[in-house]
């Protein structure tokens, strides 16, 4: 039974317009109405809310006071000069910003820093350094698993997180049977890594490196 229209508008009421399009004078009627200007403009003279957040990044504890709007990604890149994690789209559409939060991979662009108080974050810088590469990083160099390098950090952190998920037996879209244990084959790797775009198209080499690493270094992460 359908409910009637609620007396009070839902909380997803229309948002006060933030439009920057003005009234189009002389517009021909073929265009949709741009009545956007009629709505009231937002008041941006409000000050940012600042909050303190404490998080551990690559085993180092940080306490900062930040604008609540700061994403985890921008905290890393702009406040802590940890620019290894990349901003490819800022809208969760490319995976270049993938980091590990308490061992779980997420897109850092779609998370607020204040949502991670007390969390442990691991970024690509925490995997290894040029002189002391993590086995997977070295595998990427050996297999030429990059070209421009901009998606690379995300691919690496995502792979580490993905392997952990597979070890825990988490299924994927291509897992044939939801009940029996998961076997991490090539198709599984490809599906599980599909949240990391690579426009240079280094996909085959990325998967080669991950496959290689998964076979050799199963125990260490």
């Amino acid at each position: 039974m359908r409910s009637d229209q609620p007396a009070n508008p839902s909380r997803r009421d229309f948002v006060k317009s933030t439009s920057t399009a003005g009234i189009a004078a002389g517009v021909s009627t073929q265009f949709p109405s741009t009545a956007l200007a009629k709505s009231s403009l937002p008041d941006v003279r409000e000050k940012a809310f600042t909050q303190q957040v404490t998080l551990t990044i690559n085993s180092r504890k940080h306490t900062l006071g930040i604008d609540t709007r700061t994403t985890l990604l921008d905290l890393l890149r702009e406040k802590l000069a940890l620019t290894g994690t990349k901003k490819g789209c800022d809208h969760g559409q490319c995976g270049a910003c993938t980091v590990l939060v308490n061992g779980t991979r997420i897109n850092a662009c779609l998370s607020l820093a204040v949502m991670h108080d007390s969390d442990e974050i691991r970024t690509v810088e925490g995997l290894g350094t040029p002189d002391n590469l993590h086995a997977l990083q070295d595998g990427f160099v050996e297999h030429d698993s990059y070209q421009c390098g901009y998606c690379t950090s995300g691919q690496l952190c995502s792979a580490i997180g993905m392997l952990s998920e597979a070890r825990k037996g988490m299924p994927s879209h291509v897992t044939p049977d939801l009940i029996i244990p998961v076997t991490l084959n090539r198709d599984e790797i490809k599906e599980r890594m599909s949240g990391n775009l690579c426009r240079c198209g280094a996909y085959q080499n990325i998967c080669n490196a991950i496959e290689d690493y998964a076979e050799r270094d199963r125990e260490t992460v």
Binding site: R77, A81, L82, T83, G84, T85, K86, K87, T123, V124, E125, L127, G128, T129, P130, D131, L133, Q137, D138, F140, V141, E142, D144, Y146, G149, Y150, T152, S153, L156
Partner: peptide, 20 residues
């Protein structure tokens, strides 16, 4: 192996917005 490889895989290759 690419000589810039270790920089790229460790997040040490700096792109325009990242210059300090």
């Amino acid at each position: 192996r690419r000589i810039d490889g270790p920089l790229k895989v460790s997040g040490s290759a700096t792109y325009a917005y990242e210059q300090q």
